[in-house]
Design a protein around this nucleic acid. Structure first.
Length: 478
RNA sequence: GGCCCCAUCGUCUAGUGGCCCAGGACAUUAGCUUCUCAGGCUAAAGACCGGGGUUCGAGUCCCCGUGGGGCUACCA
């Protein structure tokens, strides 16, 4: 049975580079119908944090990288490491070394592995043949004097015990491989296959670090990246499916995945391309799901409360779906749909608004007001019948006129009708479209940019639109 | 310093000796679309690190140089 593992250490949040390592393990296991094991390398008690473990698990689940087995914790397996270290000690393959410094005086001795000179050759599934000479290596500590195992030793014991067949990890571990192979040899264990994947670098060169920007998966989630987009981007960094398509689903990646297609070159992280991919995914996503994804951001920014109107949100989100790079942008882009009429305008907005004559403003309000906001009654009844989620039509109570009015679809106040009204004024007053449209946008949104104005007004609704225009004109003394 | 790894447009990559005067994507620039921005569409610009070999033929194989990265902990 083919088995791989992902073994993060909880000394920090899940890093993008680690996430990519997890992804490649996941893809390989999926492609080969093997098992994907999760192991937490928390043998360094001082630097490990329980809270971070939970966070890492959550990030992995969010990414859709569900493991088949585990998580195992190294901290719970100390006896195991000790047992094998003592075995090597008894066989004369390791020796005790008394602590040198005064600081470690009270502690017991470390168990140190005796390194014998030899040539070790590995056949890396990505890099190919690599040869090492162990004569340049110092003797290796197995168990520290505080009783905890060193990384390389614990790693070997665990990978063997867990029957890991393929070790896929970052290429910063290449130099650790010969050390680990010596342990496998000394213990008489079968050596697994190795595949080292290149690290992710930051634009200036050097490992991707906080200096550059967000490096933790959680930060991208919080900013409103879709997990599919992040996965897609990470996969594309160092691996390319056949063909020229860039947007690839997780299932497709699994079926097409192959370790031999992974590049040996380290890849530089590029936020622009991630943004582009994320925008593509946002555009593709069904509006209903987009609303659900946006709700937490709108709530966090205090724009909606518990009793939001889902169908209205759908219309708003639809307006911005094609313009978002990531979800958290929605609040700043769409806040005017949620906030009360504006009393303060930017200098630029004021200037634009004042360019339109008072009488045109008045005419505009009149025309908008003349657009019928409600569906004829019969249609409204139909609409309600279809939309009320009550089983068995027979038991349906006729809605009150009040409910009917509230629930009726505002089919009259459409983008088309709003545009018609505006175009009429434009034609009658002999002005250019932009001369009316820009001030109107500024008055309604205080923004120089945004979605198509007529659609925007339609979604804003007749009542709100007119109220805002009136408040605006009063405030600016027009 | 020692050991190990890597090297195609600014970035991610395709390319496994002839299909490559090197293809795609992001970013950039220009045009079109339009009420703005975004988007969409079209086009342009842009790379085989350098030097030696091998071969009829090299981005592709070998060597050297240069550059980048990793390891060199009782960190993982």
């Amino acid at each position: 049975m083919l088995k791989v593992r992902f073994a993060p250490s909880p000394t920090g949040s899940l890093h993008l580079g680690s996430a990519r390592t997890a992804l490649f393990n996941f893809l390989f296991a999926g492609n080969k119908k093997g098992r994907f094991v999760l192991r937490i390398e928390d043998s360094d008690r001082e630097r490990s944090d329980k809270k971070l473990v939970e966070e890492i698990l959550e990030d992995l689940r969010w990414l859709g990288l569900q493991w088949d087995e585990g998580p195992y914790f190294q901290s719970e397996r100390i006896d195991l490491y000790k047992k094998y270290a003592e075995k090597l000690l008894n066989e004369g393959k390791a020796y005790l070394e008394k602590a040198q410094s005064a600081k470690r005086k009270a502690q017991s001795a470390a168990i140190v592995f005796k390194v014998h000179p030899q040539k070790i050759k590995i056949n890396d599934l990505i890099y190919g043949e690599i040869e090492f000479d162990t004569s340049v290596l110092k003797d290796q500590v197995l168990m520290k004097s505080d009783g905890s195992p060193t990384y390389n030793f614990a790693c070997v014991i665990d990978d063997h015990q867990l029957r890991i067949t393929h070790i896929i990890r970052g290429d910063d571990h290449i130099s650790n491989t010969p050390k680990q192979i010596m342990f496998y040899q000394a213990l008489g264990w079968q050596i697994p296959e190795f595949a080292h994947i290149p690290l992710i670098m930051e634009p200036g060169g050097g490992r991707l670090s906080k200096r550059y920007g967000a490096t933790a998966v959680g930060e991208y989630r919080q900013k409103g990246y879709l997990s599919e987009a992040l996965i897609n981007y990470l996969a594309l960094l160092g691996w390319a499916p056949a063909g020229t398509r860039e947007i690839v689903s997780l299932d497709e990646m699994i079926s097409k995945f192959s370790l031999s297609k992974i590049n040996k070159t380290k890849a530089i992280f590029n936020i622009d391309k991630l943004n582009w991919l994320n925008a593509q995914y946002i555009k593709q996503t069904e509006t209903k799901r987009m609303v659900e994804l946006c709700i937490p951001f709108l709530r966090k920014d205090g724009l909606i409360s518990n009793d939001y109107d889902f169908s209205h949100l759908e219309k708003i989100v639809d307006l911005f779906k094609g313009r978002l790079k990531y979800l958290s942008q929605i609040s700043a882009m769409a806040d005017y749909f949620f906030l009360p009429a504006r009393l303060k305008y930017s200098k630029e907005a004021k200037t634009v608004i004042k360019k339109l004559d008072k009488e045109i403003w008045q005419e505009l309000i009149k025309r908008l007001d003349n657009i019928d906001d409600f569906t004829p009654l019969e249609k409204a009844v139909d609409f309600n019948r279809r939309s009320l989620p009550i089983k068995g039509d027979g038991g349906l109570k006729p809605p009150s006129p009040q409910t009917l009015r509230e629930r009726s679809s505002p089919t009259g106040f459409t983008a088309d009708n709003v545009e018609k009204a505006c175009r009429e004024i434009i034609a009658e007053k002999g002005i250019k479209g932009a001369e009316l449209i820009h001030p109107l946008r500024a008055a309604l949104t205080n923004m120089p940019v945004g979605p198509g104005l007529f659609e925007l007004i339609s979604v804003l609704g007749k009542k709100k639109a007119i109220e805002r225009l009136k408040v605006c004109l009063a405030t600016l003394g027009i």
